[in-house]
Computed example of a mutant assay.
Amino acid sequence: MANMPMDIVTDVFVRLPASMLVRCRVLSKPCFSLIDSPDLVASHLKRTLETEEHLMILLQSDRLLRTVYLDAPDKLSDVENPLPTGGFTEVFGSVNGLIGLTNSPVDLSIFNPSTRKIHRLPFEPIDFPQHSITRQYVFYGLGHDSVSDDYKVVRMVQCKHKDGAGGYPYEIKVFSLKSNKWKRIHLRFEVQNLLVRFYYNLTYRSGNGVLASNSFHWILPRSEGYIEFNTVIRFDLSSDDLGVLSFPEELYHEDYMDIGVLDGCLCLMCYCDFSHVDVWILSEYGGKWSKFITVPTSKTVVSLEFVRPLVYSKDRSKILLEINNGKLFWFDLGSKSFEMLVIKGYDEDRPWNVEIVVSSLVLGCKGDPRRAREKKMMQKVNKRCYCSSLYCALLLVLIP
């Protein structure tokens, strides 16, 4: 290692999963500095996103977090929940290797499960009486603003009165990781009028903002007497503007819908009497929607209460679908057949929430300073083991 040129070391490091790079930091001071450098963090993320290597499936249930690499489903790993005990942990999105975690509307964190680095957001009160809000009235979004190169969390809260008198007051606040501050968003009058007159009445899964083209998206379902057609609302991370996105006319009056994202493109899932699900896609942002696939029931999948496309297979012949309570199936685009993704040690009878997470060094590798026990364990590790691991990784990378 001492005589190896740093440009070769850098080329090796950008190809390794972030969890291995965390361990490689103890090899030497130059390795430590290189892995913590902004240039390597950016290069590693760029290559991971381009090649789609080291993709992980994050599984969350109650306070349990687990990860497994998509191409190695027999190696399920537990991730220690970094939030204080006492609450039901929710995951509200994933971007560039980071996930959003919350135990309550005012207890929010950004967490990197690869490096175990966490950033706890400063406390930001909700400007409504506590008795008028429950957790299902709070909607989140975690995203990366490509314009300002900043990671942001959006928290949208609606206050529901029992009789609905006076409409449904709301607030939108945005957290910036760069400034480590929250700010209140004030909207245009026409958008304010739309929100105040209508209550979202969305489930938890539908309530999380879907990130595409630097904006979060939510479905605003039609409500008799208020909104005649289903609508997609969008919040631009750069301009802090909330507006309306085009919606396919064929779905104006559908009653059961959800929204997702596949390969950076927005998707709408239309449930048809739970016998099949039509998936519509917006291939070009700002363009026209088109019907993408129809997911049918089968002997393998007998009900379709919830369907969400997650990721393409490497040859793009299949799509990984989350169906119902965290069950994962590969859906063949040609044969329309299903193949269950078998994860060793995965409890299929337990309800899970699923996110696709890339392996990245975003947020850094230093870890939470309160995790003293883990820090001491890392200091006792034999460096020669890491040298051997890196040498093996070097051979795998450089030998064709």
Rank of each mutant, 00 (worst) to 15 (best):
D36M: 07
F189T: 05
Y386W: 04
L333I: 09
M269Y: 11
D332T: 14
G100Y: 02
A212E: 04
L21E: 00
K178N: 15
V79F: 11
S104P: 10
I356T: 04
H253Q: 07
E53M: 03
T231L: 08
D163Y: 14
K314C: 12
I259A: 03
V362A: 07
E305I: 06
S238V: 03
W280Q: 08
F274I: 08
W352G: 01
L333Q: 06
L237Y: 15
N324D: 14
S360K: 04
L361C: 09
N230P: 10
L108A: 11
P105W: 04
L320E: 00
D349K: 12
P221R: 12
K344G: 04
T231W: 02
E171N: 11
E348A: 10
A212H: 08
D7L: 00
R197C: 15
N103V: 07
D36Q: 11
S206N: 15
I343C: 02
S104E: 10
F306Q: 09
G225P: 13
M257C: 13
D62T: 07
W352H: 03
P351Y: 00
K314Y: 09
E224W: 15
G367N: 08
I259C: 07
N112R: 05
E53C: 03
N103E: 06
E124R: 13
V279E: 03
K314E: 12
I185L: 03
